[in-house]
Amino acid sequence: MLEIKNLHVKLEDEDKQILKGVDLKVEPGKVHAIMGPNGSGKSTTSYVLAGREGYEVTEGSATLDGEDLFDMEPEERAAAGLFLAFQYPVEIPGVGNMTFLRTAVNSQRKLRGEDELSAGEFLKIVREKAKTLKIDADMLKRPVNVGFSGGEKKRNEILQMAMLEPKVCILDETDSGLDVDAMKLVAEGVNALRDGKRSFVVITHYQRLLDHIKPDYVHIMSNGRIIKSGGPELALEVENNGYTDLLAEQETA
C-alpha cells in the first residue's frame, strides 16, 4: 500500500535537510503511529506525502499501491486515496462547508472517472456521517473552519475523511489542542473508519491518543529518521520515560 523508501527531503529555500532517510511500509488495514520530539520531521513527512510546496525530495521514493506519489499533483494523490488530516485545518471564509465537501467529493470522483453525486445523494450521506461525529447542521452551513473551536476543526477533518473514503489516512497531530472528550469523539470517528483495508498513519506527541486509536506498530522518529520501531508497548515506554533514553540509546548504538 503506502511505501516510503530512504526518503530525504530538504527545504526548498534553505539548505536545510529535514528528512534523512525515512523508511516506512504501511500494509492495508494497519495502524502505524509515528512519535517523536518536536522538530524530528513528523509533520514534514506528512506534508511531503500530501504534496505541499516548499520541500524538495533529494533522494528516495514514496509509492501508493506502486504508483509514485511524487509524480502526482496534490489533487491526484487525493484521488488516488491519500488523505491528510491537517494539524492546523485552514479557514476558508466565504466557502460554505457543505460546498467544500461536495466539491471535494465530486472532484475526486471526476478524477477517477466516476459519476458525480447528485445533490440529494450527497446530502443524505453527509447528514448521516455528520451525525455520528456530532457535527450539527449549523457547522455544515458555516464557512469552512471559520469560527470553529479546536475540537470542531478536528471533527471536520474526520468528516472530510469519512466522506472521501481514502485508502491511507495520515493524521497529523490530530490530538493537539483537544480536551479528553473531544479527543475521544475524534478517535471514535477514526475507529469507525477502520474496516480492515484502510490504513492509518497517526502522528502524535503523546501516548494518550493511542489509548483510543490502537496502533499495530509504533515508530519513533528523531532527527529526520525513524530510529526505532516496535509494537504498542513502545508508545508506553515513551510515555513513562520520555524520549531521552531512546535518543541516548540511538546515539550509543
Partner: peptide
C-alpha cells in the same frame, strides 16, 4: 489567492483551477 487555502482544497482532490474559482467567488461573496 491564499496559498494555504489553495493547498487545503487541492489536498482534498480539487483541481487548482476549480479551487481558484471557488476562492475567487468566496472573495466576492461579501
Amino acid at each position: 489567492i491564499d496559498e494555504a487555502a489553495l493547498f487545503y482544497l487541492r489536498s482534498r482532490g480539487v483541481s487548482p483551477q476549480e479551487a481558484t474559482d471557488l476562492l475567487t467567488l468566496a472573495f466576492l461573496a461579501e
